[in-house]
Design a protein around this nucleic acid. Structure first.
Ligand SMILES: [Mn+2]
Ligand SMILES: [Mn+2]
Ligand SMILES: [Zn+2]
Ligand SMILES: [Zn+2]
Lengths: 139, 139
DNA sequence: CAAGCAGATTAGAATTATTCTAAAAGGTGA
DNA sequence: TCACCTTTTAGAATAATTCTAATCTGCTTG
């Protein structure tokens, strides 16, 4: 019987290598938490707590290192909505955010329907990096 | 000769009182730096350096306290664009921002021409606070 | 399947931004 | 002027993040 290769079981080692990162135990453990299951918005502290719960020992420094590397490699984006707290977002599709200020929650909304029209041209000598739309709401 | 009252010389004491804040020396000194001249985006550290240059002694703790109070009183707004750095914005009119990521500069652009259309309704039980549009560019 | 080595992880110290504490000073209404 | 409540302040504390330098580990080579 031929070995089945199921594309439903994502191979994080392969994915990390494709991104130019060595698939170490820690990075694979973090990738699993981050990327299996749906899109997520995590903080470093939160991710650290989660990965510890899977009984993989990963230091907090490594969580920070990894999140920064994943971001630089284009596997994550960083969203800054509140002073002193960064969220890392596994949803790399074009989308925007609701931020519930009263409880610090961040929610996606698709950019399909949203149009941002009439933006001025970027200042001389600069190139566009990203347009963030953050809808702030409170309970 | 009757004393002239020029509306071109803003009376910060009056303005602070109107906002429910006692016009202390420190608050007046900071208000002067912040509000005379055009619109500004300042950090706490930057404002502290500026006010010291006017030979008014104001502690950094007071700069932080004052910026937070001015924001809560509606004299300023806070803009968070990068992790670990808050900008306080004296421009209270409806507008959006360019953020030059490579050198940390924040620039206004008027919201006249900009239309954000098709925003979804806020989640149940929340009310809209503000919509931020941040155009990130790099040199 | 060794080594060998560059790259990764880690504990803990360091840094940065910001807030807190508690004592001294100041603004204001009577 | 006085009393009283508010504000300021130095310095300690906190929180998020980064750095250091020693140890470890994934990968290539022989
Ligand atoms: Mn970072
Ligand atoms: Mn604040
Ligand atoms: Zn998102
Ligand atoms: Zn502005």
């Amino acid at each position: 019987m031929v070995r089945m290769i199921s594309s439903a079981i994502p191979d994080f080692a392969v994915r990390l290598r494709a991104a130019g990162l060595r698939p170490t135990r820690q990075r694979v453990a973090l990738a699993r938490v981050l990327f299996e299951g749906g899109d997520r918005h995590v903080t470093a502290e939160g991710l650290h707590a989660e990965v510890k719960a899977t009984s993989h020992r990963v230091s907090l420094a490594t969580v920070y290192n990894t999140l920064n590397q994943f971001r630089d490699a284009g596997l994550l984006r960083e969203v800054v909505v509140a002073p002193g707290r960064s969220y890392f977002d596994t949803n790399m599709s074009h989308h925007h955010h609701f931020f519930i200020e009263t409880d610090g929650e961040l929610h996606d909304f698709p950019s399909d329907k949203v149009t941002v029209a009439g933006l001025p041209t970027p200042p001389k000598g600069t190139k566009l990096s990203r347009v963030d739309v953050i809808v702030r709401v409170r309970r």
